[in-house]
Amino acid sequence: MSIQAIEDTKVKAFPAPAKPAEVIAFTAKVRRRFDPTAIAGKLASTLVPPAVVIIVMLVVWQVACSSPNASLPPPSQVWNEAYDLIAHPFFDYGPQDIGLAWRVLISLQRVAIGFGLAAIVGVALGALVGQSIWAMRGLDPVFQILRTVPPLAWLPLSLAAFRDSSPSAIFVIFITSIWPVIINTAVGVRNIPEDYRNVSRILRLNQLEFFVKIMVPAAAPYIFTGLRIGIGLSWLAIVAAEMLTGGVGIGFFIWDAWNSSRLPDIIVALAYIGVTGFCLDRLVAAAGAFVTRGTTAK
């Protein structure tokens, strides 16, 4: 009797709690990943705080600028007067009357050319400075002086050299964004572990193979830090450069709106610039995270 009873409990007790417990644990883990309420909760926790801050800012701004003799328009006036700019970013009514998204795209095109050139030349120069002690001794002091020159100070000189506004603006982008790329690349190259260099020496990699297969991937985290600073600076510079050179970019739009006293338009343009700059920064950061996956872990 008693033996049987023990056997019975054994048979029942062992498989029953063990198996389902495991299964539950696994499904629970898997479910948590795709759980819509969890995702919604996460989204809410990242989106709600900034939304609250923005609403508070708008309310304060509305109250502060509501008096009839306020010098700046309140948000409600911006919404009413610049509604077509906010609602229709892609309208096209002729050469000078286009939506803000088009203007941003034109500015982005200039940034793409100027920053692209800066990235290529910057990585090459940075590699040279990081690799060769004599290149560093010769070039580094020059770079350190030139990089402190404000972007717009280059503009008159480049206008004189290129005799056209568009290449001048691109040059200003280039010269603004190249310094952080050079300096960060040089630091990254200088920090390549001696072992990696020894590996390449034993394999007898030539200069180009070493550059492509060892130097760029090893220095990639540094290079992308430089690129990220560079893209931010070039977006700062393009708006200022376009204000002075004219054309159809977002920078000139602000200057034009100021000359015709359309303050609400300026405010909408500022929002466009800010959002675009934010997106550019995130884009380069994401590209960096994608490219350097694996490199950071030793």
Partner: peptide, 13 residues
């Protein structure tokens, strides 16, 4: 004259 380094020196990427 291939070397096996003390800290392996594999390229992490």
């Amino acid at each position: 004259r291939a070397v096996v380094f003390q800290n392996h020196s594999l390229l992490p990427w």
